[in-house]
């Protein structure tokens, strides 16, 4: 493909580790040219610039002045809004890491800025591209297990450390980090919004200043009941980082998704560790392909800013519920 026809993309911040894999996958696409990056952590920016052989700009403003059509935002959650609005005003399409932001007002401003400036905002929910998930959704759409009655979900993880455990930068711990993926899947499968959320939340596993475990229970409009465990509860000795699971109870059948169970067992004496090597298909590349195609073919984003907002709202509702020790009705007032 001629260089001029390629979709030119800039990376705004490598604070979130996904920036690394996103950049690698984007650079592997024939239809994409990654122009450069900007990172407020200069050292990290230089290291990434060297690794990917792309230009590191002094700041985001300079990156946005370049001839680029789109940006990928992988900053700390609390900076999503500022960067996204800046990018929107510079008329760049946006792929924003989840969660969309740390509060409803910021999310609304982001969506508004994109609308006003005629640019597209897509949220990075790669779980929608997991093969087991897309297959399950197709089985449900075909009516093969009848009406959906209940969903039991988990998105367990390990303790991430870094800015993830600084509430000012992340907006919240395990509940903020791991509620949005699975709630997004449930919304996508059911085509319904959460009506009521209840949560028990604690920081008892790691005893840091931020929530690290809990369990959410919610009900969707239309009556589907659901729960979700977003805990950072996989110990260091565990075989893998965590999981995404969905047990979907239908009137005529039950579907169980264990999206990261495609594993080869490795027993490594040098690390005294048993771990899983995943052999599943890559969901990130499909998500990035969708983002690039959105730009090339002028399509609507597969996962909108509104999707990002509604998923985050459930996490915020969970925090409010845990604080009040009672169920909370959505949307939040």
């Amino acid at each position: 493909m001629a260089s001029d026809d390629k979709v030119k993309i800039g990376i705004m911040s490598f604070a979130h580790m996904h920036a690394h894999s996103y950049t690698a996958y984007l650079m592997g696409m024939d239809s994409v040219k990654v122009i450069g990056l900007a990172d407020d952590d200069k050292k990290r920016g230089r290291a990434m610039s060297k690794e990917f052989k792309i230009k590191a700009f002094d700041n985001c403003k300079k990156l946005l002045k370049e001839d680029i059509e789109a940006v990928v935002i992988c900053s700390e959650n609390s900076k999503h809004a500022e960067l996204a609005i800046m990018a929107a005003e510079a008329k760049k399409h946006i792929l924003c890491e989840k969660p969309i932001s740390t509060n409803i007002k910021d999310a609304q401003k982001m969506i508004e800025a994109c609308k006003k400036n005629g640019v597209k905002l897509m949220l990075a929910f790669p779980c929608r591209y997991l093969t087991s998930v897309t297959r399950a959704r197709r089985i449900i759409e075909n009516g093969e297990i009848g009406r959906i009655l209940a969903i039991k979900g988990t998105n367990h993880g390990s303790f991430p450390g870094g800015w993830f455990v600084d509430v000012k930068k992340s907006g919240g711990g395990a509940v903020m980090d791991h509620t949005v993926h699975v709630v997004d899947l449930m919304r996508w499968i059911l085509n319904k919004e959460v009506k009521r959320v209840y949560a028990e939340i604690d920081k008892s596993i790691h005893n840091k200043k931020i929530d690290d475990c809990g369990t959410l229970a919610f009900e969707f409009h239309g009556g589907v009941i659901a729960t979700l465990d977003p805990s950072w509860s996989r110990p260091k000795s565990f075989m893998t980082w965590g999981d995404v699971t969905l047990d979907i109870i239908g009137e005529k059948g039950v579907i169980q998704v264990d999206a990261f169970a495609q594993a080869i067992n490795v027993f490594d004496d040098t690390k005294n560790k048993h771990y899983w090597a995943n052999w599943g298909s890559n969901a990130d590349t499909k998500m990035l392909r969708s983002f690039v195609d959105m730009i090339r073919y002028n399509k609507e984003p597969a996962i909108s800013g509104y999707d990002g907002l509604k998923a985050m709202e459930v996490a915020l509702g969970a925090y409010e519920s845990a604080k009040k020790k009672q169920a909370v009705e959505l949307p939040l007032k």
Partner: peptide, 21 residues
């Protein structure tokens, strides 16, 4: 089919699933 969340006095959070489905 039932899903429950219990909070114990000792702080433990428990999620329970029971199903006839």
């Amino acid at each position: 089919y039932a899903l429950a969340v219990l909070r114990f006095k000792n702080g433990v959070i428990a999620h329970l699933e029971a199903s006839w489905a």
